[in-house]
Write a protein that binds this DNA or RNA. Structure first.
Lengths: 127, 127
DNA sequence: CTATTATATAAATAATACTTTATATAATAG
DNA sequence: CTATTATATAAAGTATTATTTATATAATAG
């Protein structure tokens, strides 16, 4: 029963649902999420960890960055995620999406690194 | 998004899942649930209200009693309830079920009232 | 090697949620 | 009407969870 409670509790918080909605578009590193949500990094890390511990996210370390993505290996959690995604209207989190886009576009440093091996690049404007 | 959070939060607590599992067997009045869970009445009322506010339960007043039952009018909540029920193994809450059965059987007063109109009877041993 | 960057984690604080105790209310038995 | 019963609610206390600030760690650029 504890696992079930942990599962639902992970989905019972605003910031975490915003993260899920962001990751609908694919993998992001922590700094991308920080920029998109416009909240401080330890707060983002805290919530990412709650979602990960509950089995909703997977992480992938790459150099200095940690990339998070939706973990869709479990059927029940996958159903819950889809339910969440379809119940949050696109316009509700438009600001998050907008900040993410701006952050992604406005990355002069990344452009300089496009030719470097994947290991050294970040999806955002990280150096 | 707030409604979604409220929905999941309602399912993020031990006592509330025990209540849901109890109500799988059908409508019960508050005193039945108090007896089954062996916890104090205001605590039960608090959790019943959380579940009701989240749309998982309906209540029905009958004389001095309030009977609660699962509200299966909404498809999504219904799916969540079924998911909860099937994920809580029968043996996990055997003690609750046992206390409920004992309480239901051991009701000398109710037997005296069986012939009275429905309005005056309680499912438990309430007088 | 040193400085910087990305992220994590610890400690302190703040905010929420739950529990308990006490009391209110409404129905009804006597 | 008065006492009792079932349930609800308010107030106070406790516990849990979230947030912030500060710091640690690990990677890497220079």
């Amino acid at each position: 029963m504890d696992e079930l409670i942990k599962t639902f509790k992970a989905l019972s918080e605003d910031t975490r649902l915003r993260i899920i909605k962001l990751l609908e578009g694919g993998e992001l590193c922590v700094c991308d999420i920080v920029a998109a949500l416009d909240i401080i990094q330890p707060k983002v890390s805290f919530h990412l960890n709650v979602l990960k511990e509950a089995g909703f996210l997977k992480d992938r370390k790459q150099g200095r960055w940690t990339h998070y993505r939706i973990d869709d290996t479990d059927f029940f959690r996958r159903f819950l995620l889809v339910s969440v995604l379809e119940r949050i209207p696109k316009e509700a989190l438009a600001a998050d999406r907008k900040r993410l886009e701006t952050f992604m576009e406005d990355k002069p440093v990344r452009d300089n690194l496009v030719s470097l091996p994947e290991k050294k690049r970040c999806a955002g404007r990280c150096r």
